[in-house]
Amino acid sequence: MGYAIEIEKLTKNYGKARGVEDVSLKVAEGDIFGFIGPNGAGKSTTIRSMLGFLKFDQGKITILGMDSVKDHEKILAEVGYMPSEAWFYNSMKVSEVIAYAAAVRRKDCRKEAEMLCERLKLDTNKRIKELSLGNRKKVSIVCAMQHKPKLFIFDEPTSGLDPLIQKRFFELINEYVDQGTTCLLSTHVLSEVNKYCRNAAIMREGRLMMLDSHEIDDDTFLSYYEEDES
């Protein structure tokens, strides 16, 4: 089986501040991989390095068999990314944002986008500035899924979404994964890891540790956070 994500000895520092150190990670194709850890542990730094937002100091990242630096554009064409804070251009309508994302990708995604908006109950006639965080997250989901990418990278995707939409969101992930998509899910929600993920790793103080099982009990889960505070 091939790997959708291969990270080898990734190190990224922000001046004197710690980013991530010597992180190695492999996510198999077709996996739903849980990426957990306290705030500031380095999850977003790892994700943002994968996507080329950050210039890392050392290491190598391979996404879908392509080098993250050399094949940056090709990788982004095959990735659906949802950032933790979903921000767009305030003056644009939801429909315009979705159409813009598809147009830049040079794909006709209207049918898929329509299906996603219907299932997520997203009003496409509203302007971005009129939307709550939850509704902006829905726009982000549509933009990440409408082009049927080979890899999803979701950074705390469910914050702000109501329980029904959360359920539908994971139903959608499972449907896409059944068709061959891989999903990296960064989250603080234990139930999401236990229920939907097949493998998981925890990030603490800039270092990564693979977990033997994605099924974690509350006490173990919280201990990852408590130890970090001490």
Binding site: E73, A77, Y81, P83, N90, C143
Partner: peptide, 14 residues
């Protein structure tokens, strides 16, 4: 500043 960069730069553009 408007945090729209994560949207724009996640699109397949250098």
């Amino acid at each position: 500043e408007g945090h729209s960069g994560e949207f724009l730069f996640s699109l397949p553009l250098s």
